[in-house]
Amino acid sequence: MKVSAIAAAAPLVAALPAIHERQADASIHDAFVAAGKTYFGVATDQGLLQRESNAAIIQANFGQVTGENSMKWGSLESTQGSYNWGPADFLADWAVENGKEIRGHTLIWHSQLPGWVENIGDAETLREAIRNHVATVMGRYKGKIFHWDVVNEILNEDGTLRDSVFSRLLGEEFVQIAFEAAREADPDAILYINDYNLDQANYGKVNGMVSLVTKWVEAGVPIDGIGTQTHISEGMGANVHGALEQLASAPVNEVAITELDIRNSPVEDYTAVVQACLDVEKCTGITVWGVSDKDSWRQGDNPLLFDGSFAPKDAYNAIIEQLGA
């Protein structure tokens, strides 16, 4: 989706560090697009973009950004009706200024949820809260954010619906409410359901995801895609192909790997995950969950493609070679 510049971009982008020479020999995004996919992206946010080599690496090597925390409900609307747009706007402005696509993450999630939402005790009040939040957030970024994780981590490991304020008061209805509100807010956005531990075919959560999404889509819920986070450990990369194939069997237009990181970043696992996306037609792109190991939420696991000194790892270089770049 082509995006237009945001008026406030110039003063925000001017605050960033100077651009430095590329830290890797080739762009992983460009190579992935040349191989027929849509994007190879990365999670980031304002604080990261304003220090060290994060911005330079993303500018040179990645084609899409996901807000790591800035667009979550607790970050945006901790007090009902009062929004803190600063960090999310910064990310959106920076992405537009630098020609990067944006993934919105996330509208409805049981975690990082404001207390005022968690404490709602009436079903109709919760319905209105969901509709208002989705309409407000997506309305602000309409035409700028091309993918949205509308609901996030809503399943248990056995594939049943997770207990949350949403499921307790509304059952499965909250999924329909959220997706219908999202479609109304931005008819052109691609709407996703996103979850973790969707990394092995015929696992309970994978089975449940395919079954529920099939039921919801057939009932008219406008779900366009399934996101598999893919936070995995060594040796698990080979399982991703089968899981992606199973997820792609649901009646959705696309699937994506949305939060990839792999403990100790083994070459064979990273290349297996990339190959899985290449081989599954519906897989549109991959997002890694951060640039450098030093900033990873998995401290000590060293799971990303750039090390703590912002040097590209063997896994990054192996993917570039794999893609023929």
Rank of each mutant, 00 (worst) to 15 (best):
M236T: 03
V65Y: 03
G86W: 10
G159F: 11
T66R: 02
L260C: 06
N84E: 06
G63E: 08
V255F: 13
P303R: 08
C277R: 06
A55L: 04
S292P: 11
E321W: 01
T106P: 08
T230G: 05
E173G: 00
D293G: 09
S82P: 06
K2C: 01
N152A: 10
D30T: 01
D158N: 11
G208T: 06
N207E: 10
V137R: 08
R168C: 01
T44D: 09
A7D: 12
T125I: 02
S78W: 09
A31P: 00
E234T: 15
L247W: 12
A10D: 14
E97C: 10
T271G: 07
S265E: 08
P251S: 11
A315S: 15
M236P: 00
Y83G: 06
Q246N: 09
W94S: 02
G74H: 01
E218W: 13
R131A: 11
G47P: 11
V210N: 04
N317S: 12
A185W: 09
L323D: 00
L323H: 02
G204M: 13
P11Q: 07
D269N: 02
P266D: 02
Q112C: 03
H110F: 12
M209K: 04
L191Q: 12
A14H: 03
H147D: 00
S233H: 14
M138A: 03
V267D: 11
F179Q: 01
T136Y: 08
S309A: 15
G308P: 00
N152K: 09
I130W: 08
F179P: 00
M209W: 07
I286Y: 12
